[in-house]
Design a protein around this nucleic acid. Structure first.
Length: 306
DNA sequence: ACTATGTCCTGCGAGC
DNA sequence: TGCTCGCAGGACATAG
């Protein structure tokens, strides 16, 4: 399940391997779910565009494009089939795109392709003769011959195009303590739910929420507003440390996560609580407990976390 | 304004 | 062995 460290790993791999490349053509599967913009619109934006960089915002990958490098031949855009579901989401996407629009200084925003990997999504950078995996939903063919492929068995991932992409929530690694603490002071929801809320902090998911709470010594069900200043300080440090360490390890490979070269991450070997129900706590040997918070499997040490 | 819950989707492992 | 069933969860819709 890609969270901030996995998405950052993918971003780095993409940036290194496809920056400066031109997209010559695109292909989409006819499964409707992964596309928030209609495929023909995505194709129209991508085809002929040059990739000027790859950014990340929370769990979103933002592929920056220079348009008008080459005007796409009209009517030649490849696209998958349409469907009622796609048309409904199309109207919605247009409204969101308009709402998200933000003026750059020169007044001409460049287009962007946004990718969210969901639960099981992966981006590959491959040669064209590499075997096309089952559940491949999009292929961007590049001028060098390389391909960017979006693979997602469970189809919780999303791809769309926009300009001036903005999303709410704070980047946890760029947030100081006072701003961090202010997010939680008034909230009655369990601290774990608050950590998962992307409108507050963006990028923390189920694994890193559990791991951060363990390192901070805080029980997942504690009301966010009940945390003392010192506990919030521990949590702030723990979130940043866990995310930084996980990025350094190339992320955690639990479900179907692989980086753009198909390599798994290594951080799962350093999980203290996630996926360790019944096993001894590394700090005190008490058996790790598993409960459900916010509908998510939640792991903690009943002795070390209070 | 918050908070809680249901929904989507497929692969996999438990259980018989 | 081969089958069914339930679980896994990020983001969003909907209900309270």
């Amino acid at each position: 399940m890609p969270e901030l460290p996995e998405v950052e790993t993918v971003r780095r791999g993409l940036a290194q391997r496809v920056t400066g490349e031109q997209i010559t053509s695109v292909w989409f599967s006819n499964k409707p779910q992964p596309f928030k913009s209609p495929p023909h619109e995505i194709a129209q934006v991508l085809q002929g565009a040059r990739i000027s960089g790859v950014q990340r915002a929370g769990k979103h990958i933002v592929i920056e494009l220079d348009a008008d490098v080459l005007t796409p031949p009209s009517g030649s855009a490849a696209a998958g089939t349409s469907s009622p579901a796609l048309k409904r989401s199309a109207a919605k996407a247009v409204r969101k795109t308009t709402a998200a629009r933000a003026q750059r200084q020169d007044g001409a925003e460049h287009p962007q392709c946004i990718v969210h990997l969901g639960m099981t999504g992966a981006l590959q950078v491959t040669s064209p003769d590499a075997v096309i995996l089952k559940h491949t939903h999009a292929i961007l063919r590049l001028a060098s011959g390389k391909e960017i492929r979006f693979v997602d068995p469970r189809r919780f991932g999303r791809i769309w195009v926009t300009r001036g992409f903005q999303t709410v929530g704070l980047e946890p690694l760029n947030t100081g303590f006072d701003t961090f603490a202010a997010l939680f002071r008034q909230r009655k929801t369990p601290i774990k739910s608050a950590l998962l809320n992307q409108k507050l902090l963006r990028g923390v998911g189920n694994i890193y929420a559990d791991e951060s709470l363990f390192r901070a010594g805080i029980r997942p069900r504690r009301r966010a507003s009940s945390l003392a200043r010192q506990e919030l300080q521990h949590l702030h440090k723990a979130v940043q440390r866990v995310l930084r360490e996980a990025i350094a390890a190339g992320g955690s490979s639990i479900s179907d996560y692989f980086d753009v070269e198909g390599e798994p991450g290594l951080f799962q070997t350093r999980h203290r609580v996630y996926g360790r129900e019944g096993q001894p706590c590394f700090r005190c040997t008490t058996a790790i407990k598993r409960i459900v918070v916010a509908g998510r499997g939640t792991h903690y040490c009943p002795k070390c976390q209070r």
